[in-house]
């Protein structure tokens, strides 16, 4: 069983991961405390989504340790991992809803699979969550009939249907207009306050990150640059952080010969 008093719900130490001969994450160490919102930031391809996949045991690291709710998940047997995953919820970037089911059936699926509740109770619980996400009028629609923002909210509704202890949210703002994106940020904060969830959000949106985060981790090219609260990030003098905060493009010094080689390689 999971210790309810455990302080750090996620603890990562020395995480390395490779894709073929390319290193994706290098020596990542961080922890996430209970009931905080941890935002993992970085530009596209920085490895932040890969880090998220490692935290939920979808990928296995080359080396390092990942503890989820106090339990080491690297090399964990699949049935133990499934047991652990009943305490987490994951909202994917595109919602990842099952296209053959209606919105309501999607949201109800975990309850049907993991509980012995009767049909009516399950229906009430799913409507509660859909109401929370402002989707109660659309419960009979198929995923293909929903807009991008609705898909994300539906994915979120399904992720929190079991009232998980930790919620993982991959790119809540990607592909959304600023207003819809702000609404999702409010929803995330509401979930933390109303349902006492620990929330881990992966995003590249500065405004959203600073609105919802208790602490922020910035990842660049697989390297963990900084982890700290908003003030620490703002005060950082690391040029990569300053560039990110001021939305300046990274201008790495490029060697003319290297550049020429890059363009003319076979």
């Amino acid at each position: 069983m999971i210790d309810p008093k455990i302080k750090n719900v996620i603890e990562i130490k020395g995480l390395d991961t490779w894709y073929g001969s390319k290193q994706i994450l290098s020596n990542i160490s961080l922890h996430v405390e209970r009931k905080e919102v941890m935002v993992i930031m970085g530009h596209s391809g920085s490895g932040k989504s890969t880090l998220l996949r490692h935290m939920i045991g979808l990928n296995n690291p080359a080396s390092g340790s990942i503890k989820l709710l106090g339990k080491e998940i690297t090399g964990l047997k699949s049935n133990e991992l499934y047991e652990l995953r009943k305490h987490i919820g994951v909202a994917f970037q595109n919602g990842a809803l099952f296209s053959s089911m209606t919105l309501q059936e999607n949201v109800e699926l975990p309850l049907h699979e993991h509980t012995k509740l009767d049909h009516n109770t399950i229906r009430i619980m799913s409507r509660l969550k859909l109401e929370l996400m402002n989707l109660s009028d659309n419960e009979d629609l198929m995923p293909a009939e929903l807009s991008g923002g609705m898909l994300k909210r539906a994915g979120l509704a399904r992720a929190v249907i079991m009232d998980p202890e930790i919620l993982f949210f991959d790119e809540p703002s990607a592909g959304l207009d600023p207003v819809t994106s702000a609404e999702l940020d409010d929803l995330i904060l509401q979930l933390r306050d109303a349902l006492n969830m620990t929330i881990i959000v992966v995003t590249h949106e500065l405004v959203s990150a600073f609105k919802i985060a208790d602490r922020i981790t910035v990842i660049d090219n697989g390297q963990q640059i900084i982890t700290g609260d908003k003030e620490t990030i703002k005060k950082s003098t690391d040029p990569r952080i300053v560039n990110m905060l001021e939305r300046r493009a990274m201008n790495d010094d490029i060697d003319a010969d290297d550049y020429l080689n890059k363009l003319t390689r076979n």
Partner: peptide, 8 residues
């Protein structure tokens, strides 16, 4: 992946 994350 979503199925696996839902412990299904």
């Amino acid at each position: 992946d979503a199925l696996e994350c839902m412990a299904i």
